[in-house]
Design a protein around this nucleic acid. Structure first.
Lengths: 336, 336
DNA sequence: ATGAAAGCGCTAACAA
DNA sequence: TTGTTAGCGCTTTCAT
């Protein structure tokens, strides 16, 4: 590995001291303009870049944010990540992203690894397994080290930190209400992510909407996200005389559409379908899926903004807050 | 930020010198067992972890690999990333991933940023824009700094480095051959990623297969990946009397399926469809899409293995090599 | 068996 | 206006 240029080398070549060179590069007014120019010239000749490691070691800041995501093959998290990146880079922060694949063990490893690589702060969406096991010691460690954490979407009440969430309950309620308003009476709420807190909230919202509309009824079903989901959902659709499906996750809705085709049910004439998460599957289904958009990008950006404000302003001892991002229903062709 | 424990503090508390503590933690035989034990005890009490920044600064190694990907909402790259991560972590390497969103500018920024953060090496898939512009100076810089680079899938002949690619031409030829073997005569090869080298190779493969089968004919079409792709593909299908479509990318195939539905063409009875990249869209289409699997995970793993061997063995001045990963056709329900 | 000291590349208080 | 020095946390050579 050919050594990169250092201050030392520039100093030697210019017959200056290291500190003079350092100051010159920062255009410190206490250095003569002439020297500053000489230094800049040689520096750009060599394409000098300060060694980030050394700067970080010195300043005890890495200007890096660690991101923990459960999944990446998921429009929601991918878009959130995009939002985070946008916002973080505006403030000069880099991001390091780790995907837990919904595993608790991986999550713990990554949090430790990033902490030990001295990221300045964390943005986290909990893995499914972590939510199920309800184990959060790894975040207590961060708290102990005073490393700020912002959680989004997949959060836990048991962790005291800033949070940004989507109003899943309301979103689900609105979706059901929309189905009812467009003439549906027997509605199914189905999901393949039954273990997640968000799914529970979405079920709750669905129930609320039904309670307010006595003429409509609700069937709930949780499928394992296995390789027989399709068959299961097909069976479900065949055995339940319903006129609408709310998929509480993107897969559930996509599969519901496909199985409706298979069974010969017309969409939306015979069955209306609404999904959550406005991703690839929703956009490329036939007919195009009406979906609840969670504004993932906003969500990510908001989380990043909160974290950065902590990092830059060092605003300690403030009460943690939870922001709620509104959802909206994107009406497409799978509903009347 | 509460300071993390350092060697200095352990040393002070144990009344030892920093170097003794350092050696003890490494179980250096020149330290007495008793001291080693004392040190380990206190270290684990404080949950001591060496400061990664300092270690890296000292060793001039970060044990980190920089990954440059054009896109992440793409099963292919996501799976490749998974393969890379698996393999890298086996050898104790962390990865830092940057997504260029197919932008040349972003790619240059990220490469510089990672280089300047002292990653030990790079694994890269070029962005579309970079391939089109044919500008690779940022990789010459890496070469100058002797930072090893392995490219995969989206590569360029103009860069001299190790490469891992998929045999796109053969894959495409086989796919067309399969269509012909199952009775198709008038085949369309369409894509939304016309600018990429892989698309060109896939077109070539298609032509080769047609040349070998005189009874069959080929129509080629490149669509812009805009929001009117669907309408365009619909028009294309309506105006061309074809009995098979080979989508040279996942989107093209998915849209072809949906538009066939819209036009009332039965799949696979009237139109057979094969796609590239075995992703979410292929798995959740109706009927399920027959696809060319590019074994993305293998590809990523292979790239990582090559890079790590460079990094760990320091095997300089070897001729660069290009590995080709075989593809396979996953037969599902969209073909006869 | 233990410790002192130098140095990785950089910053910044202080001296000249 | 420029330079000296100390120190961030760690490793390692060379004393002791």
């Amino acid at each position: 590995m050919r050594k990169k240029v250092t201050l030392k080398q520039l100093a030697k070549e210019l017959n200056l001291s290291i500190s003079t060179v350092s100051k010159s590069l920062k255009n410190d007014p206490e250095i003569s303009q002439k020297t500053i120019n000489r230094v800049h010239e040689l520096a750009s000749f060599y394409n000098y870049k300060p060694n980030a490691l050394a700067v970080s070691l010195k300043s005890n800041k890495t200007k890096t944010i660690g991101i923990i995501l459960p999944e990446i093959l998921n429009h929601f998290f991918a878009k959130a990540l995009f939002g985070i990146e946008q916002e973080a880079s505006k403030s000069g922060y880099k991001i390091v992203t780790c995907i837990t694949n919904e595993s608790y063990k991986k999550e713990v490893e990554y949090v430790e690894m990033l902490n030990y690589s001295s990221v300045d702060g964390f943005i986290v969406a909990l893995s499914q397994e972590t939510q199920v096991l309800n184990k959060f010691d790894h975040y207590q460690d961060l708290k102990r080290d005073d490393v700020p954490v912002v959680m989004f979407d997949r959060v836990s009440d048991e962790i005291d930190c800033d949070k940004v969430i989507v109003d899943d309950k309301v979103a689900s309620r609105n979706a059901i209400q929309y189905l009812i308003d467009t003439g549906c009476k027997k509605i199914a709420a189905i999901t393949t992510i039954g273990g997640l807190s968000v799914a529970k909230l979405r079920f709750e919202g669905a129930r609320e909407a039904i309670q307010e509309n006595e003429e409509a009824s609700l069937v709930e079903f949780v499928f394992e996200d296995s390789n027989i989901v399709e068959a299961e959902i097909e069976k479900f659709l065949k055995n339940n005389d319903i006129d609408a499906v709310l998929g509480l996750d993107e897969t559930a809705a996509a599969v519901a559409i496909n199985m409706s085709h298979k069974l010969g049910y017309k969409i939306p004439e015979e069955i209306s379908v609404i999904g959550f998460t406005d991703g690839l599957l929703s956009q490329h289904s036939y007919p195009k899926l009406t979906t609840v958009s969670q504004h993932a990008e906003d969500l990510g950006a908001k989380a990043a903004r909160i974290l950065v404000s902590h990092l830059d302003n060092f605003n300690e001892n403030q009460k943690t807050k939870t922001e709620v991002v509104k959802t909206s229903l994107i009406i497409r062709d799978s509903t009347n």
